[in-house]
């Protein structure tokens, strides 16, 4: 019965999701299409090396990494910033809309007057958010795998899968955080603001902790640091990904418990 909310959630967002998939796939294709010209210009490595350390560390350009290799190039151009950013925007938007947004619009009133537990409603909506994130990551994976032979990226497919798993884990933790904040407080603004701010902070910690020593102890709190940067070159940190997924589950369960205690907002 709560499964209807999963179905409804996916169906309500299907247009937005389709648009995201097309947009991200197009962006991936564009980035891939530029690769042959990067590959053939050995000066590019030198140029990148001359970047200030702050930029290098923010973009996950590891010492000894090779940005003219397919894996190095995609790590810098896609997996260090753009893909997490796009997936997070989708995940946070969807997590905030599906509960807080519905409540703001007064549509939860009727749904929660039906004989289902609120916490099951939250879990069903969490499943819908997860399904959207996985869909986008799979589309990205397919796009990259199809483009690989065309532009000669020469990727290891296992590494690609790891990178996508890490990407999905990041989406999940912030998407479910948005859902959980909406479950705890009846408003869409904090459901977007809290996870967005948390993600921005975590991203900076992950990128800059080596340069700013005082940030170093906080790196364990950053999902970006936990899953590992440059996943196509050095693989994702499997344990880190697991920790992030467990954190996401805990956040979602907390939301499912908190939603029971409070009043539903008057429509």
């Amino acid at each position: 019965m709560a499964a209807e909310l999963l179905r409804r959630g996916l169906s309500d967002h299907r247009r937005a999701l389709a648009a995201w998939c097309v947009g991200i796939a197009a962006y991936v294709a564009l980035v891939a299409a530029i690769f042959p010209s990067i590959e053939s210009s050995p000066d590019f490595n030198k140029l990148v090396e001359s970047y200030p350390d702050v930029l290098k560390s923010l973009f996950g350009i590891a010492a000894g990494g090779d940005v003219t290799s397919g894996a190095g190039y995609l790590d810098v151009e896609l997996f260090s910033l753009m893909l997490p950013l796009l997936v997070l925007v989708l995940a946070i938007g969807s997590g905030a809309r599906t509960l807080a947004g519905e409540e703001d619009a007064g549509r939860l009133e009727l749904v929660l007057s039906y004989p289902l537990r609120r916490r099951d409603a939250v879990l069903a909506k969490g499943a819908a958010v997860a399904a959207e994130i996985v869909t986008v990551c799979v589309v990205v994976g397919i796009a990259i795998a199809l483009l690989d032979p065309l532009v000669g990226l020469d990727l290891a497919l296992g590494r690609l899968a790891e990178a996508l798993g890490a990407l999905a884990a990041l989406g999940l933790v912030y998407g479910w955080l948005a859902l959980a904040v909406g479950a705890a407080w009846p408003s869409r603004a904090p459901a977007i603001g809290v996870p967005a701010a948390a993600a921005a902070g975590a991203y900076l910690v992950s990128g800059l902790h080596e340069l700013a020593g005082w940030l170093d102890p906080f790196r364990f709190l950053s999902p970006f640091w936990l899953v590992g940067s440059s996943p196509l070159q050095s693989g994702a940190d499997a344990r880190g990904v697991l920790v992030v997924v467990v954190a996401a589950v805990i956040v979602l369960l907390a939301g499912a418990l908190l939603v029971e205690r409070r009043d539903l907002e008057t429509p």
Binding site: D12, E109, L110, S113, P115
Partner: peptide, 27 residues
């Protein structure tokens, strides 16, 4: 219980049939 809210908000994009079908599955 059956409940009619004072300020009824339905899923605007659905048709009446889809809305009732969805609520039936929820019930």
């Amino acid at each position: 219980l059956g409940y009619l809210p004072g300020d009824l908000r339905l899923s605007d994009r659905l048709t009446g049939r889809e809305q009732l079908e969805s609520l039936a599955s929820l019930r």
